[in-house]
Amino acid sequence: MTHFLLIHGSWHGAWVWYKTAPLLEAEGHEVTCAELPGRGRHPATPAFVGLSDMVRAVLKQLPPGIRFTTVAHSRYGILASALAEAVPDRVERTIYLASYMLPPGDRAASWFRSDRQSALLPGIEVNRLALWDWLQPHVYREALYHDCPVEDWMLGRLMLCREPARPAITRLKLTDANYGRVPRAYVRLTEDRAVTPAFQDRVLAATPVDRVEDIASSHSVYFSKPEALVRTIVRLSSP
Rank of each mutant, 00 (worst) to 15 (best):
M1A: 12
M1K: 11
M1D: 09
T2W: 02
H3R: 04
W11E: 10
H12R: 15
H12L: 15
G13Q: 03
G13H: 06
G13C: 04
V16M: 01
T20A: 10
A21N: 05
L23I: 01
L23N: 10
E25H: 03
E27N: 11
G28D: 09
E35V: 14
L36S: 03
G40C: 03
G40F: 11
P43R: 08
T45W: 08
T45A: 15
T45V: 14
A47T: 12
F48W: 09
V49E: 09
D53V: 00
D53C: 08
M54W: 09
V55L: 05
R56C: 10
V58W: 10
Q61C: 13
P63M: 08
P64R: 10
F68C: 00
T69Y: 02
V71F: 00
V71N: 00
A72C: 04
S74M: 14
Y76D: 00
I78W: 01
A80K: 06
A80I: 07
S81H: 01
S81E: 12
S81Q: 12
P88G: 04
V91Q: 05
V91S: 10
E92A: 13
R93D: 07
R93S: 01
R93M: 02
P104E: 03
D106L: 10
R107I: 12
F112N: 02
R113H: 14
R113N: 13
D115R: 04
R116Q: 15
S118T: 03
S118V: 04
S118W: 05
G123C: 06
G123A: 10
I124G: 00
E125R: 08
E125C: 00
N127H: 11
L131R: 12
L135D: 02
Q136S: 07
Q136T: 06
Q136M: 11
Y140D: 07
A143E: 02
L144V: 13
L144R: 12
P149D: 13
P149F: 12
P149E: 14
V150M: 12
D152C: 14
M154T: 15
L155G: 06
L155R: 14
L155H: 15
L155F: 15
G156P: 10
R157H: 12
L160D: 02
L160C: 04
E163R: 13
P164N: 02
A165N: 04
P167Q: 08
R171E: 11
L172H: 08
L172F: 11
L172V: 15
L172E: 11
K173Q: 14
D176Q: 11
D176I: 05
D176Y: 01
Y179L: 01
G180H: 06
V182K: 12
A185C: 08
V187S: 01
R188W: 03
T190E: 00
T190K: 03
V195C: 08
T196K: 03
P197W: 04
P197Q: 00
A198G: 09
Q200E: 13
Q200T: 05
Q200N: 09
Q200A: 07
R202A: 05
R202L: 05
A205N: 00
A206G: 06
T207K: 02
P208I: 01
V212W: 03
I215T: 11
S217Y: 13
S217K: 13
S218T: 15
V221H: 07
F223N: 13
F223R: 06
F223A: 15
A228F: 14
T232Y: 04
V234A: 05
R235T: 11
S238V: 00
